[in-house]
Amino acid sequence: MEKEILAEIKDLSVTYPTRIGSVSAVDHVNFNIYKGEILGLVGESGCGKSTLGKALLRMIDPPGEISNGKIVFRGENIMEYDYNHLRDFRGRHVSMIFQDPMTSLNPVQRVDEHLIETIQVHEPQTKEDSALQRSKVMIERLGIGIERLYSYPHQLSGGMRQRVMTGIGLILNADLIIADEATTSLDVIVEAKLADQLREIRDEFGVSLLLITHNIALVAEMADRIAVMYAGHLVEIGDIYKIFEEPKHPYTQGLLASVPNIRFDTNEHLYKMPGEPPNLTHPPLGCRFHPRCPHAMPICSQREPLLVEIEEGWSVHCWLYQEQSS
Protein backbone atom coordinates (compact mmCIF):
# COMPACT_ATOMS: atom_id res chain seq x y z
CA MET A 1 0.00 0.00 0.00
CA GLU A 2 1.33 3.38 -0.97
CA LYS A 3 1.41 5.54 2.13
CA GLU A 4 0.40 9.14 1.85
CA ILE A 5 3.08 11.58 2.96
CA LEU A 6 1.90 14.14 5.50
CA ALA A 7 5.14 15.93 6.25
CA GLU A 8 8.58 15.89 4.75
CA ILE A 9 11.49 17.04 6.84
CA LYS A 10 14.29 17.87 4.45
CA ASP A 11 17.85 18.48 5.49
CA LEU A 12 16.69 20.20 8.67
CA SER A 13 19.26 21.74 11.00
CA VAL A 14 18.72 23.68 14.20
CA THR A 15 21.61 25.63 15.65
CA TYR A 16 22.07 27.48 18.91
CA PRO A 17 24.81 30.06 19.20
CA THR A 18 26.81 29.77 22.42
CA ARG A 19 29.85 31.57 23.69
CA ILE A 20 32.10 28.72 22.61
CA GLY A 21 30.67 28.37 19.16
CA SER A 22 27.42 27.29 17.64
CA VAL A 23 25.79 24.01 18.54
CA SER A 24 23.85 22.07 15.97
CA ALA A 25 21.26 20.33 18.09
CA VAL A 26 19.63 18.91 14.99
CA ASP A 27 21.97 18.30 12.09
CA HIS A 28 20.77 17.76 8.53
CA VAL A 29 17.89 15.49 9.40
CA ASN A 30 15.73 13.93 6.68
CA PHE A 31 12.57 11.89 7.15
CA ASN A 32 8.89 11.71 6.31
CA ILE A 33 5.82 11.45 8.44
CA TYR A 34 3.01 9.48 6.83
CA LYS A 35 -0.67 10.06 7.25
CA GLY A 36 -2.17 8.12 10.12
CA GLU A 37 1.04 6.56 11.35
CA ILE A 38 2.60 6.53 14.77
CA LEU A 39 6.26 7.38 14.50
CA GLY A 40 8.38 6.88 17.60
CA LEU A 41 11.34 9.23 17.87
CA VAL A 42 13.83 7.93 20.42
CA GLY A 43 17.26 8.78 21.68
CA GLU A 44 19.13 9.79 24.81
CA SER A 45 18.47 13.05 26.61
CA GLY A 46 20.03 15.90 24.69
CA CYS A 47 20.14 14.08 21.35
CA GLY A 48 17.92 16.75 19.80
CA LYS A 49 14.64 14.88 19.64
CA SER A 50 12.65 17.51 21.53
CA THR A 51 14.32 20.27 19.55
CA LEU A 52 13.27 18.49 16.39
CA GLY A 53 9.70 18.31 17.68
CA LYS A 54 9.65 22.03 18.40
CA ALA A 55 11.23 22.79 15.05
CA LEU A 56 8.27 21.15 13.33
CA LEU A 57 6.16 23.98 14.73
CA ARG A 58 8.94 26.48 14.13
CA MET A 59 9.01 27.08 17.87
CA ILE A 60 12.75 27.18 18.43
CA ASP A 61 13.40 29.75 21.11
CA PRO A 62 15.79 32.49 20.05
CA PRO A 63 18.74 32.76 19.84
CA GLY A 64 18.39 29.26 18.43
CA GLU A 65 17.20 29.00 14.84
CA ILE A 66 16.40 26.63 12.03
CA SER A 67 19.57 27.22 10.09
CA ASN A 68 19.01 24.89 7.19
CA GLY A 69 16.45 22.78 5.39
CA LYS A 70 12.72 22.90 5.08
CA ILE A 71 9.58 21.35 6.45
CA VAL A 72 6.98 20.54 3.86
CA PHE A 73 3.58 19.92 5.36
CA ARG A 74 0.81 18.72 3.07
CA GLY A 75 2.73 20.12 0.14
CA GLU A 76 3.41 23.53 1.69
CA ASN A 77 6.78 24.67 2.90
CA ILE A 78 6.07 26.05 6.35
CA MET A 79 9.44 27.78 6.40
CA GLU A 80 7.87 30.31 4.06
CA TYR A 81 4.91 31.06 6.33
CA ASP A 82 4.65 34.53 7.83
CA TYR A 83 3.82 34.93 11.52
CA ASN A 84 0.04 34.94 11.18
CA HIS A 85 0.03 32.00 8.83
CA LEU A 86 2.34 30.13 11.18
CA ARG A 87 0.18 30.93 14.16
CA ASP A 88 -2.84 29.49 12.42
CA PHE A 89 -0.83 26.44 11.40
CA ARG A 90 0.07 25.76 15.04
CA GLY A 91 -2.81 24.13 16.77
CA ARG A 92 -4.90 23.75 13.64
CA HIS A 93 -2.71 21.35 11.65
CA VAL A 94 -0.08 20.33 14.14
CA SER A 95 -0.54 20.33 17.86
CA MET A 96 1.73 19.41 20.68
CA ILE A 97 1.37 17.65 24.01
CA PHE A 98 4.13 18.42 26.45
CA GLN A 99 5.95 16.48 29.09
CA ASP A 100 4.65 18.06 32.23
CA PRO A 101 0.87 17.99 32.44
CA MET A 102 1.06 19.88 35.75
CA THR A 103 2.30 23.03 34.11
CA SER A 104 1.18 23.00 30.52
CA LEU A 105 -2.33 24.25 31.24
CA ASN A 106 -2.92 27.82 32.37
CA PRO A 107 -3.61 27.52 36.13
CA VAL A 108 -6.21 30.28 36.16
CA GLN A 109 -8.22 29.02 33.18
CA ARG A 110 -10.88 26.34 33.32
CA VAL A 111 -10.80 23.39 30.93
CA ASP A 112 -13.67 24.76 28.88
CA GLU A 113 -11.91 28.10 28.55
CA HIS A 114 -8.83 26.37 27.15
CA LEU A 115 -10.86 24.49 24.57
CA ILE A 116 -13.08 27.39 23.56
CA GLU A 117 -10.11 29.70 23.31
CA THR A 118 -8.29 27.28 21.05
CA ILE A 119 -11.31 27.01 18.77
CA GLN A 120 -11.87 30.73 18.64
CA VAL A 121 -8.24 31.60 18.02
CA HIS A 122 -8.43 29.65 14.79
CA GLU A 123 -12.08 30.20 13.94
CA PRO A 124 -12.96 33.70 15.13
CA GLN A 125 -16.43 33.44 13.62
CA THR A 126 -17.39 30.47 15.84
CA LYS A 127 -19.82 31.42 18.57
CA GLU A 128 -19.02 30.61 22.15
CA ASP A 129 -21.89 28.17 22.64
CA SER A 130 -21.13 26.13 19.54
CA ALA A 131 -17.49 26.03 20.61
CA LEU A 132 -18.69 24.82 23.99
CA GLN A 133 -20.77 22.11 22.35
CA ARG A 134 -17.78 20.86 20.43
CA SER A 135 -15.69 20.95 23.59
CA LYS A 136 -18.27 18.82 25.37
CA VAL A 137 -18.27 16.25 22.59
CA MET A 138 -14.49 16.09 22.62
CA ILE A 139 -14.24 15.81 26.39
CA GLU A 140 -16.74 12.98 26.46
CA ARG A 141 -15.01 11.26 23.61
CA LEU A 142 -11.83 11.25 25.68
CA GLY A 143 -13.59 9.66 28.60
CA ILE A 144 -13.55 12.71 30.81
CA GLY A 145 -16.81 13.48 32.60
CA ILE A 146 -18.65 16.56 31.35
CA GLU A 147 -18.53 18.06 34.82
CA ARG A 148 -14.73 18.20 34.49
CA LEU A 149 -15.16 20.78 31.77
CA TYR A 150 -15.61 23.39 34.47
CA SER A 151 -12.63 22.32 36.54
CA TYR A 152 -9.40 24.19 36.91
CA PRO A 153 -6.20 22.33 36.00
CA HIS A 154 -5.17 21.88 39.64
CA GLN A 155 -8.36 19.98 40.29
CA LEU A 156 -7.47 17.29 37.75
CA SER A 157 -5.07 14.36 37.99
CA GLY A 158 -1.98 14.17 35.80
CA GLY A 159 -3.51 11.63 33.43
CA MET A 160 -6.66 13.66 33.09
CA ARG A 161 -4.69 16.78 32.30
CA GLN A 162 -2.82 14.97 29.56
CA ARG A 163 -6.16 13.87 28.15
CA VAL A 164 -7.33 17.47 28.26
CA MET A 165 -4.16 18.48 26.41
CA THR A 166 -4.89 15.76 23.88
CA GLY A 167 -8.42 17.07 23.52
CA ILE A 168 -7.11 20.57 22.90
CA GLY A 169 -4.81 19.08 20.29
CA LEU A 170 -7.65 17.29 18.57
CA ILE A 171 -10.41 19.86 18.79
CA LEU A 172 -9.50 21.37 15.42
CA ASN A 173 -8.90 18.02 13.75
CA ALA A 174 -5.15 18.39 13.59
CA ASP A 175 -3.29 16.18 11.13
CA LEU A 176 -0.32 15.63 13.38
CA ILE A 177 0.06 15.46 17.12
CA ILE A 178 3.52 15.75 18.55
CA ALA A 179 3.67 14.10 21.95
CA ASP A 180 6.88 15.31 23.55
CA GLU A 181 7.50 12.91 26.43
CA ALA A 182 3.78 13.18 27.03
CA THR A 183 3.56 10.07 29.15
CA THR A 184 6.89 10.31 30.93
CA SER A 185 5.68 11.92 34.11
CA LEU A 186 2.70 9.62 34.52
CA ASP A 187 2.72 6.41 36.53
CA VAL A 188 2.83 3.21 34.49
CA ILE A 189 -0.87 2.40 34.70
CA VAL A 190 -1.99 5.88 33.69
CA GLU A 191 0.71 5.87 31.05
CA ALA A 192 -0.61 2.64 29.55
CA LYS A 193 -4.12 4.06 29.51
CA LEU A 194 -3.03 7.24 27.79
CA ALA A 195 -0.99 5.25 25.28
CA ASP A 196 -4.05 3.13 24.54
CA GLN A 197 -6.13 6.19 24.12
CA LEU A 198 -3.66 7.85 21.79
CA ARG A 199 -3.75 4.78 19.59
CA GLU A 200 -7.53 4.77 19.58
CA ILE A 201 -7.50 8.41 18.64
CA ARG A 202 -5.19 7.67 15.76
CA ASP A 203 -7.54 4.95 14.55
CA GLU A 204 -10.61 7.11 14.93
CA PHE A 205 -9.37 10.47 13.72
CA GLY A 206 -6.74 9.25 11.28
CA VAL A 207 -4.28 11.64 12.87
CA SER A 208 -0.54 11.04 12.69
CA LEU A 209 1.37 10.84 15.92
CA LEU A 210 4.99 11.74 16.50
CA LEU A 211 5.89 10.11 19.78
CA ILE A 212 9.02 11.71 21.18
CA THR A 213 10.26 9.63 24.08
CA HIS A 214 13.17 7.81 25.63
CA ASN A 215 10.86 5.02 26.62
CA ILE A 216 11.68 2.28 24.11
CA ALA A 217 9.04 -0.02 25.56
CA LEU A 218 6.35 2.53 24.87
CA VAL A 219 7.51 2.88 21.29
CA ALA A 220 7.57 -0.89 20.87
CA GLU A 221 4.03 -0.99 22.17
CA MET A 222 2.60 1.81 20.09
CA ALA A 223 4.60 2.86 17.08
CA ASP A 224 4.45 1.73 13.47
CA ARG A 225 7.88 3.08 12.70
CA ILE A 226 10.80 4.14 14.81
CA ALA A 227 13.36 6.87 14.27
CA VAL A 228 16.54 6.88 16.33
CA MET A 229 18.51 10.03 16.96
CA TYR A 230 22.03 10.37 18.24
CA ALA A 231 23.79 13.67 18.89
CA GLY A 232 21.62 15.61 16.47
CA HIS A 233 21.78 13.03 13.71
CA LEU A 234 19.02 10.73 12.62
CA VAL A 235 20.89 7.43 12.66
CA GLU A 236 18.22 4.91 11.78
CA ILE A 237 14.60 4.97 10.72
CA GLY A 238 12.31 2.19 9.62
CA ASP A 239 9.61 -0.30 10.41
CA ILE A 240 9.33 -1.03 14.11
CA TYR A 241 9.24 -4.84 13.78
CA LYS A 242 12.20 -4.99 11.48
CA ILE A 243 14.34 -2.69 13.57
CA PHE A 244 13.49 -4.41 16.83
CA GLU A 245 14.19 -7.73 15.18
CA GLU A 246 17.50 -6.79 13.69
CA PRO A 247 18.75 -3.27 14.41
CA LYS A 248 21.35 -2.17 11.87
CA HIS A 249 23.01 0.87 13.36
CA PRO A 250 25.42 0.03 16.18
CA TYR A 251 23.82 2.77 18.30
CA THR A 252 20.35 1.29 17.83
CA GLN A 253 21.76 -2.09 18.73
CA GLY A 254 23.23 -0.72 21.92
CA LEU A 255 20.08 1.22 22.74
CA LEU A 256 17.84 -1.80 22.38
CA ALA A 257 20.24 -3.95 24.38
CA SER A 258 20.08 -1.42 27.21
CA VAL A 259 16.32 -1.82 27.70
CA PRO A 260 15.62 -3.70 30.93
CA ASN A 261 13.62 -6.87 30.67
CA ILE A 262 10.94 -7.50 33.23
CA ARG A 263 11.39 -11.30 33.23
CA PHE A 264 12.81 -12.55 36.51
CA ASP A 265 14.53 -15.60 35.13
CA THR A 266 17.21 -13.77 33.21
CA ASN A 267 20.54 -13.40 34.84
CA GLU A 268 21.94 -11.28 32.07
CA HIS A 269 23.34 -7.93 33.00
CA LEU A 270 22.02 -4.95 31.12
CA TYR A 271 24.20 -3.79 28.28
CA LYS A 272 26.01 -0.62 29.19
CA MET A 273 27.08 1.47 26.29
CA PRO A 274 30.65 2.67 26.76
CA GLY A 275 31.44 6.38 26.79
CA GLU A 276 29.25 9.46 26.93
CA PRO A 277 27.25 11.33 24.30
CA PRO A 278 29.50 13.95 22.68
CA ASN A 279 29.59 17.60 23.53
CA LEU A 280 27.80 19.20 20.63
CA THR A 281 29.95 22.32 20.61
CA HIS A 282 32.80 20.09 19.44
CA PRO A 283 31.22 16.99 17.94
CA PRO A 284 33.57 14.25 16.78
CA LEU A 285 34.54 14.42 13.13
CA GLY A 286 32.90 11.97 10.77
CA CYS A 287 30.22 9.83 12.36
CA ARG A 288 29.34 11.34 15.72
CA PHE A 289 28.95 7.89 17.23
CA HIS A 290 32.35 6.52 16.26
CA PRO A 291 34.15 7.10 19.61
CA ARG A 292 31.63 4.76 21.27
CA CYS A 293 31.10 2.39 18.38
CA PRO A 294 32.28 -1.22 18.68
CA HIS A 295 32.49 -1.49 14.89
CA ALA A 296 34.35 1.76 14.22
CA MET A 297 36.48 1.78 11.10
CA PRO A 298 39.11 4.30 10.01
CA ILE A 299 36.70 6.11 7.71
CA CYS A 300 34.17 6.65 10.54
CA SER A 301 36.37 9.31 12.12
CA GLN A 302 37.08 11.02 8.80
CA ARG A 303 33.85 11.41 6.91
CA GLU A 304 30.24 11.51 7.88
CA PRO A 305 28.17 8.69 6.41
CA LEU A 306 24.96 9.39 4.49
CA LEU A 307 21.53 8.24 5.51
CA VAL A 308 21.08 5.46 2.97
CA GLU A 309 18.13 3.24 2.35
CA ILE A 310 19.15 -0.36 2.86
CA GLU A 311 15.75 -1.68 1.96
CA GLU A 312 12.45 -0.04 1.27
CA GLY A 313 11.50 2.27 4.11
CA TRP A 314 14.56 1.43 6.18
CA SER A 315 17.45 3.86 6.27
CA VAL A 316 20.66 3.78 8.25
CA HIS A 317 23.28 6.44 8.78
CA CYS A 318 26.38 4.24 9.06
CA TRP A 319 29.48 3.33 7.06
CA LEU A 320 28.84 -0.37 7.65
CA TYR A 321 26.03 -0.27 5.14
CA GLN A 322 27.40 1.86 2.35
CA GLU A 323 30.17 1.83 -0.17
CA GLN A 324 33.08 3.76 1.20
CA SER A 325 33.83 5.13 -2.20
CA SER A 326 30.46 6.84 -2.50
Binding site: M96, F98, T103, N106, T118, V121, I168
Partner: peptide, 26 residues
Protein backbone atom coordinates in the same frame (compact mmCIF):
# COMPACT_ATOMS: atom_id res chain seq x y z
CA UNK B 1 9.09 31.12 30.44
CA UNK B 2 6.53 28.76 31.89
CA UNK B 3 5.27 25.69 30.10
CA UNK B 4 1.69 26.76 29.67
CA UNK B 5 2.84 29.75 27.64
CA UNK B 6 4.86 27.48 25.36
CA UNK B 7 1.84 25.18 25.15
CA UNK B 8 -0.37 28.16 24.35
CA UNK B 9 2.00 29.24 21.63
CA UNK B 10 1.92 25.70 20.25
CA UNK B 11 -1.84 25.88 19.87
CA UNK B 12 -1.67 29.09 17.96
CA UNK B 13 -2.38 31.79 20.52
CA UNK B 14 -0.79 35.10 19.57
CA UNK B 15 2.13 36.56 21.48
CA UNK B 16 0.09 39.59 22.50
CA UNK B 17 -2.62 37.37 24.01
CA UNK B 18 -0.02 35.19 25.68
CA UNK B 19 1.52 38.22 27.34
CA UNK B 20 -1.43 40.40 28.19
CA UNK B 21 -3.99 37.70 28.89
CA UNK B 22 -2.30 34.48 29.98
CA UNK B 23 0.80 35.81 31.70
CA UNK B 24 -0.66 38.93 33.18
CA UNK B 25 -3.53 37.28 34.99
CA UNK B 26 -1.10 34.86 36.59
Amino acid sequence: KSDFITAGRARGISETQLIYKHSLRN
